[in-house]
Amino acid sequence: MILIVNTTTDTSITDEIREALASGNALFSTAGAKSAGKDASSAASGFEIVEAGTMRISYCVGCNECWLKTPGICALKDDYEEILKKLIHADQMWLITETALGFVDHKGKNIIDRMIPLATMNLQFKGKQMRHIPRYKQRTDVGIIYRGDADRSFLERWNQRVTLNLHSHSLGVFPVTEKKEAIACMH
């Protein structure tokens, strides 16, 4: 399943994605041809769009309860739980976000910060670095579509690190002007 989380209040991008994914068999075959080993039929598992721009989603307070008190469950009771429940079935998550100070804005960052319940407290070495052991089997690759000015090369680097922690892969970071390229990766 492809999960698209839009933290902006502009739904025109998600409208376009919905249209492309719902009707775009041609698009899938193009995209499918590009990705080695994955056939276009994986698109049949579908997609879900979450309009998070108007949802009530707090910042992560760093309380550690999702690791040590109620493993896997966030102590903050707000609209993020809906996203967390979808994430554990998502092969891809696309974050659509505004930018600030060369980076994603706080609403976009909060979506990533709140993914912490997907990891357990327990540690292991992966390659040369310590990592938290993932809670679920599902691996979710992450891509970013951003609107506004940002330091693209830093965002690339950051998303590589984000997905290293999720034991998954970066799908790339795309300014909204390149949304078609991003959509081509949604399969």
Binding site: Y59, L101, F103, K109, D113, N165
Partner: peptide, 21 residues
């Protein structure tokens, strides 16, 4: 600051966004 998911915490970012550019 503490490291939060490979960058600055969301709340700190929210504060910094209130500074004029």
């Amino acid at each position: 600051l503490p490291l939060f998911f490979e960058c600055i915490p969301g709340l700190l970012l929210e504060f910094l966004e209130t500074l004029p550019v």
